[in-house]
């Protein structure tokens, strides 16, 4: 049950400021179903931020290293996507053509 001071009621209280939009943060998913791939960028940034924080000995050029790793992760994911597309759409039909 959701009491007046239960964690559930506190979370549900977040509904009030955004009542006009209808979206309740942490309770409803965000509506980015068409732009979902953009969420890869903050994901890659978060991974780079944490990974570099434990890897570097000094924090000299830390943010540059974070940005480079973020770019590398995003680029690798794009290349993997392109590679997968070419494999399925080009290579597989050439190797195993469908019967007429």
């Amino acid at each position: 049950m959701i009491g007046p001071f239960s964690p559930g009621s506190i979370l549900m209280g977040l509904e009030l400021p955004l009542a006009s939009t209808g979206w309740r943060p942490f309770l409803d998913p965000i509506d980015l179903h068409r732009q979902w791939f953009l969420l890869l960028i903050p994901l890659a940034f978060g991974i780079s931020l944490t990974y570099r924080a434990v890897r570097v000995a000094t924090f000299e050029k830390y943010w540059l290293k974070v940005l480079i790793l973020t770019f590398q992760v995003v680029l690798a994911m794009i290349l993997l996507g392109v590679g997968s597309y070419l494999f399925i759409q080009v290579a597989v039909p050439m190797l195993l053509p469908m019967p007429e």
Binding site: I2, R24, L27, P29, D31, L32, H33, W36, L39
Partner: peptide, 12 residues
């Protein structure tokens, strides 16, 4: 009280 997330938003 909550909306169940589905598809891409749930996965991500």
């Amino acid at each position: 009280p909550i909306s169940k997330s589905l598809a891409k938003m749930n996965e991500i």
